[in-house]
Design a protein around this nucleic acid. Structure first.
Lengths: 162, 162
DNA sequence: TACAATAGTTGCACACTTAAACAATTAGCG
DNA sequence: CGCTAATTGTTTAAGTGTGCAACTATTGTA
């Protein structure tokens, strides 16, 4: 831990005090650094945001899901889904079909173009994932994901996801 | 709800596809889960945000730093510092003093109340950190922080910090 | 002395998040 | 059956955080 303290301190000669010892602080930096990179990757190569791709992937894997169901799955409000589905629909990647069993809800499906697009993005996303985390060995990377999953699913938010 | 259950899969039964295999996805969930908890902790016990405490800690460890220097250290725009320092100043925790060597810049210092507050928060923050990450063993926690630091400091953002 | 650069500040645009409200529709219960 | 409560998609508003362009005062430099 002291070796990494030196590493952190050399960044601008500013003392971060206890922040250096708070896991949440480093988790935030790691997420920020990673997300910035991923966002650029998605934008440059596919002109899409990670959030939009997430919806595309969930709908692709679960055809017929309602907007509210997708919102719950990815963890945001159903009102936010309106703009998201609008964007994806406007790009011809997704389709709102009136549900056959409930006239209040829309069943979501990928269009054929959406399926092609998703497959293309998914393949590159996986490659990019391996590329970006190449600062870790394969074993470390695997350890990292394992730890992240446990942190992500700990506490009261666990119920929200499963 | 029974009608929609036919088509809409229950939450636990949603297939997240390739998202489950993307490290950035799990990193985001881990950060969201952690941050939500930390934010509540800071708010409930001290009526402050993690971001404000970060500035308080950096200024406390580096008395006399200018607003721009703090902004660079914590990684956001210097225009954002105005509102942050305003809030901390309004609460009597921080002080803007005109720099003696450069009349353009403000030197930042903790007030005596600010020092007491920071010490109190810092102590509890460390305890809370250990509490929250108790889903990991001490060894795993240490591993986790080590990996996070490497991910946080990898790539072009490293240069951006110094 | 002139010109470029910097610090703090303000304002704006954009995205994201929350919450509230509303119409249409469905579910639950007497 | 009929009434009430709940749910779906949607819109709107408020709050938040971020990035960018200006503006002033001041400093550094040629």
């Amino acid at each position: 831990m002291k070796a990494s303290d030196n590493q952190a301190l050399k960044l601008g000669e500013v003392d971060f005090g206890i922040l250096n010892e708070l896991t949440g602080y480093w988790l935030r930096w790691a997420q920020l650094n990673t997300y910035k990179n991923i966002r650029c990757f998605f934008f440059d190569e596919f002109d899409i945001t990670p959030g939009l791709f997430g919806v595309l992937e969930v709908v692709g894997c679960n055809p017929g899901l309602t907007q509210t169901a997708v919102a719950k799955a990815i963890g945001n409000d159903r009102s936010a889904m309106v703009a998201i589905v609008d964007k994806l629909e406007k790009r011809g990647l997704i389709e709102r079909k009136p549900s056959e069993t409930d006239r209040r809800s829309n069943a979501l499906f990928l269009t054929s173009a959406g399926k092609v697009f998703r497959d293309r993005v998914a393949g590159r996303a996986w490659d990019h994932n391996e590329e970006f985390f190449s600062m870790l060995t394969a074993e470390e990377h695997q350890q990292f994901v394992g730890l992240l999953k446990r942190v992500a699913l700990a506490g009261p938010s666990t119920e929200a996801k499963q």
